[in-house]
Amino acid sequence: MSIFLLKRFFTFIVTLLGASLLTFLSLEILPGDPARVILGIDAPQSAVDALRLQLGLDRPMVDRYFDWLAHLLTGRFGVSYTYNVPVMDLIKHRIGITFPLAILSMLLSVLVALILGIYAASRHNKIGDVSVMGLSQLGISIPNFWLALLLILFFAVNLGWFSSGGFVGWDKGFIKSIQSLILPAISLATVQGAILARFTRSAVLETMREDYVRTARAKGLTRRGTLWKHVLRNAMIPVITIMGLQFANLLAGTIIVEEVFAIPGLGRLILQAISNRDITVVRDVVILLAALVVFINFVVDVLYAVIDPRLKPQDV
């Protein structure tokens, strides 16, 4: 493994630890005693104390943090106070909805963004470029949850093509499931795609100014040939970075879009858990999402090394 990847792996681990610390601490400053919150104001103090003991809240913070970490590492998540089931059980079903939703919108946004971005760059300063850029400027300015509402209004309420929310469940078949995810995915993908399209365009334009592109033209390659053979792969390096960073936004976006479409995914779980003060669930789901994001960024770094030979191990 090259030094680059080793360094990245180290960063990956450190970021994960940082994320866990941040998550843990931000929930520790929560005002009020969780045990009291769960049992209600009228519960006798003895019952509250008993629950505190059961939850391990009487132990010092540092101990609880390392306990939690150890549990996470061994894959044993906590038990939800409110649902009274292991968090793992809650996550298991929901991740099968949220993750496909995130992937679907990522695919959509990347597909549209690359096509539009490359098209705009190749028509630089012409009408095609200007209209794509205007469109993307609009896309960036629209809140994703409002777009979600508009999509519901148009496709579900007016046209009746899709249901206005909910998720049919994978057991109803692949097509039906994707159908109930397509509107949420579009509302998530639009903003991300608009940002990515602008970025792709400027990355392609920047690369087109490179000396080696002129060299390629001097070899006799056509404009189009140069674009495909020399520009795109080089331009993809910065674009992939942005894609990695966007994944974080996309996952966060699922929280709000799942809420709009009433999709029973991780996002809704987290919102419900927050309003129920179900710390165990919030903590475990947040760290799961964070780990996913950090992992994706690590994968992006590995992709770098695949694309860019300058980062490959030097033959010594």
Partner: peptide, 21 residues
């Protein structure tokens, strides 16, 4: 800063607002 970038900011904002009220 890198760390804050890699972390879903809105998620943390939601958590923060939910906890401090």
């Amino acid at each position: 800063c890198d760390f804050m970038y890699a972390f879903p900011a809105i998620l943390l904002a939601i958590m923060l607002v939910a906890t401090i009220g």
